[in-house]
Design a protein around this nucleic acid. Structure first.
Lengths: 250, 250
DNA sequence: TGCCCACATTGACCCATGTCAACTGAGATT
DNA sequence: AATCTCAGTTGACATGGGTCAATGTGGGCA
């Protein structure tokens, strides 16, 4: 990853007090072993739009998102772009053993990462019990999510794509805030229309038109361009082409 | 997985003599430890079209493809289907810790699997050195491949999709036979037009038309419907919308 | 040998989504 | 307040790929 962090690099937080401790790679690591991680880790911050790694570039560090949103995307020579992952707090970025990043990682919001030098992390992986196990779980979760996304990209209509995206945000928002999905939740879009298009394999214009269409049909309400009300989650799920319970990976 | 194997269940092969030993989950396991795996494993065979697991069903066994081709696919309530993985010899099917399959697994050809009871395998994972590490590598490779596929599904044209698929087959064929990609390799399609459509997010008709179009343009030659000649691999790569070296995961 | 059946190809047509372009609106800059 | 800018919306039109339907074809079996 680049050496160009933007904000102050906060070293302050000890792993024991880490906000993402419960779900990150380190979550199975014992208190006693945590010292090793704590000694090696460092924070780095990035501003919106700032590049974290570029595809093809060597990434010397890997680690977790502590705060903010990071997009992973691939770009074709002629500029067509497909987002292949949208990473939130506690998600893991980068891959052990492989020095070259296969995609661009870009900060979408203000982002703080908890990083480890890659080769050091590879050694930790071998002698820190629980680390590898958690990383495997995370990788398998990502794989399931990627496959769910393949269904969306390959087979869903524009309307279904947008609706699916909103259901995911709604579930994420509900989970984070403890609200119920039932009673008219409001979600905040973490990304621009362009990024939504890149995520869903659509153009900006189609994203915009589908949002308008969903609004006209009363499935959602728009409060400014980044805030979306969902009066009836079940109706949205239906528009997403999901069977009632979804089967989706949040 | 189902208990309805079709062919003789060959227990004959010892792990030490296994044809996929070098690349499968077990490849880092020491000779001495191999006994444990060998004692637990069993073979199961399936005929073309036979279901291995259904989405939503409990899968009690997980393991490797020894021989043949397996498709993983997701289906929407209205029947739209997207293949999310095409598994060849040494690929791993199923996921530890998660009892319910998130997709259908179907034998495409005659298939032989090397299976382990899932919960037993989970225990092995913890006390067999190297097993977890290799599974992590496999999962991360699959994840990279899935993300590459997301780019294809979300952003590539029908012609590019078909061409990309053929480049992958060509590389796989070349690697398996030791031939060079340069001199007019011939690939055999392992799946029907319908399955190709499901893999690429296209209809049968579009698959057929694009193959015809590529033939008319001299990019490929058709020898029967399942055999395709590739006179100039570079030209095919170009039609796939790839920059010269690809960057694709085979 | 010839028929059958599933797989594949081809044609005609249509529609969802992309493309190109103009317009709008909210926040920042002066 | 005037204006600039950039994200977003909307409109008109083009087109790639889907849909529906007819036709071709090759391998297995009577």
């Amino acid at each position: 990853m680049k050496a160009t962090g933007r904000l102050s690099e906060a070293h302050a937080i000890h792993c024991a007090d880490c906000p993402i401790r419960a779900r990150a790679v380190c979550s199975y690591v014992e208190q006693t072993e945590l010292q090793k991680l704590n000694a090696l880790k460092y924070y780095k911050s990035f501003g919106p739009g700032q590049e974290i790694v570029a595809a093809g570039e060597e990434s010397t560090a890997i680690g977790s998102v502590v705060e903010g949103v990071v997009s992973l995307s691939k770009t074709m020579v002629d500029g067509r772009r497909q987002m292949v992952g949208l990473m939130f707090a506690s998600d893991f970025i980068g891959r052990p053993q492989v020095p070259v990043a296969p995609y661009d990682a870009v900060a979408v919001t203000d982002v703080t990462l908890c990083l480890f030098p890659r080769t050091r992390f590879e050694r930790l992986l071998q002698d820190t019990p629980g680390l590898e196990r958690r990383l495997l779980e995370i990788a398998l979760d990502e794989l399931d999510a990627a496959r769910e996304w393949m269904l969306l990209l390959g087979r869903k209509s524009a309307r279904e794509k947008i609706s699916t995206f909103l259901t995911i945000l709604a579930r994420r928002t509900a989970a984070a805030s403890g609200e119920s999905l039932g009673d008219g939740i409001t979600v905040t879009l973490p990304i621009t229309r362009e990024a939504i298009g890149d995520y869903l394999g659509l153009t900006i214009e189609t994203v915009s038109r589908q949002l308008t269409s969903l609004r006209k049909d009363g499935v959602i309400s728009l409060k400014g361009s980044r805030s979306i009300g969902i009066p009836d989650y079940a109706e949205l799920l239906d528009a997403a082409g999901e069977d009632a319970d979804g089967g989706l990976i949040a």
